[in-house]
Amino acid sequence: MAAASTHYMYVLECADGSLYTGYAVDVRARLAVHNAGKGAKYTRARLPVSLLAYAEFATKHDAMHAEYVFKQLSRNEKDALLAAASHATFEEALKNVLT
């Protein structure tokens, strides 16, 4: 995973079942930061978190746009998208909501 020029949008599941979406250049390192209690304030109160999905983008702008679009979806829409990603890549599943 981790060329500096690669950008990711990722989805975590928190211990309380809620979802957290973020941006990173190294998803595994960011997951470790979250689980160390040093990530986002939202996840600090909901540890541990687990990685559900991530999508790779060529630019930071594209990754952050995908994060924004995902956050605008209802929980049911997010769950459906994540389920679709289990049959294809998360990038492919996201294409439907990004276009």
Score class of each variant (00 low, 15 high):
Phe70Tyr: 13
Asn96Ala: 14
Asp26Lys: 12
Ala29Cys: 03
Leu51Phe: 03
Lys38Trp: 07
His87Asp: 10
Thr89Ser: 15
Leu31Val: 07
Lys95Leu: 12
Gln72Asp: 10
Tyr20Lys: 15
Val27Leu: 11
Leu51Met: 08
Ser86Thr: 11
Lys71Asn: 14
Ala63Met: 10
Leu82Val: 07
Ser18Glu: 14
Lys71Tyr: 02
Pro48Arg: 05
Asn35Arg: 04
Ala80Trp: 03
Lys38Glu: 14
Tyr42Phe: 15
His61Met: 07
Phe90Ser: 10
Tyr54Val: 01
His61Leu: 13
Gly37Ala: 09
Tyr8Leu: 08
Asp16Gly: 02
Glu67Lys: 05
Ala29His: 08
Ala36Arg: 05
Ala84Phe: 00
Asp26Ser: 12
Thr43His: 02
Glu56Asp: 11
Ala66Glu: 02
Thr59Glu: 11
Leu94Met: 15
Ala3His: 09
Ser74Val: 04
Val11Cys: 11
Tyr8Ala: 08
Val97Tyr: 12
Leu98Lys: 04
Val11Gly: 00
Val69Asn: 05
Tyr68Ala: 07
Ser74Lys: 06
Ala66Lys: 02
Lys60Arg: 15
Val25Arg: 11
Glu67Ile: 00
Ser50Phe: 00
Cys14Leu: 13
Ala66Asp: 03
Phe70Ala: 08
Tyr23Arg: 06
Ala83Ser: 09
Ala32Phe: 01
His34Leu: 04
Glu92Asn: 08
Met1Cys: 06
Met9Ala: 14
Leu98Pro: 02
Lys60Ala: 15
Leu94Gln: 08
Tyr10Val: 01
Thr89Tyr: 01
Glu56Lys: 10
Arg44Thr: 12
Thr43Ala: 12
Leu47Asn: 06
Val27Phe: 12
Asp26Cys: 11
Thr43Glu: 03
Ser74Asp: 08
Leu31Ala: 11
Val49Ala: 14
Lys71Val: 07
Asp62Phe: 03
Glu13His: 04
Arg30Pro: 00
Tyr42Ile: 04
Thr99Cys: 08
Ala63Glu: 07
Lys95Ile: 05
Ala58Gly: 15
Thr59Val: 11
